[in-house]
């Protein structure tokens, strides 16, 4: 963690899913991870909410920001690389929901 975070909902190792929803305004969650499952690898800390900052707001309360790891083969159909290749995106807590663990 590089900044202190308020009570964080997820822990490293948690399986998460990015909700596949459209949201108007300024969003820092890239389209290509929407609806995809990943795993939390770290908590970066609490940061002002960019969706509020972008319109002159104070961005409060701060949102926990997570490092989320996705398997490339889960993101792209026909991914041209070995199954171990990963993609890491920083995602604010309100853009994550718990995912059911795969057995």
């Amino acid at each position: 963690m590089i900044r202190p975070a308020t009570a964080a909902r997820f822990r490293p190792g948690d399986a998460v899913r990015v909700p596949n929803v459209e949201k108007k305004g300024h969003v820092r969650t890239p389209e290509y991870v929407k609806g995809k499952r990943g795993r939390v690898t770290g908590i970066l800390g609490g940061f002002p909410d960019p969706e509020s900052l972008a319109y002159g707001g104070a961005g409060l309360p701060e949102k926990p920001l997570y490092r989320v790891c996705f398997r490339q083969t889960d993101l792209w159909e026909g991914y041209a690389g070995p199954p171990g290749d990963t993609l890491h995106v920083d995602i604010y807590e309100h853009w994550l929901e718990p995912a059911i663990e795969e057995s």
């Binding site: 305004g25 300024h26 960019p50 900052l53 972008a54 319109y55 002159g56 961005g59």
Partner: peptide
Amino acid sequence: KTTDEMRR
């Protein structure tokens, strides 16, 4: 202004 206003 903020970085996020700029991005927006």
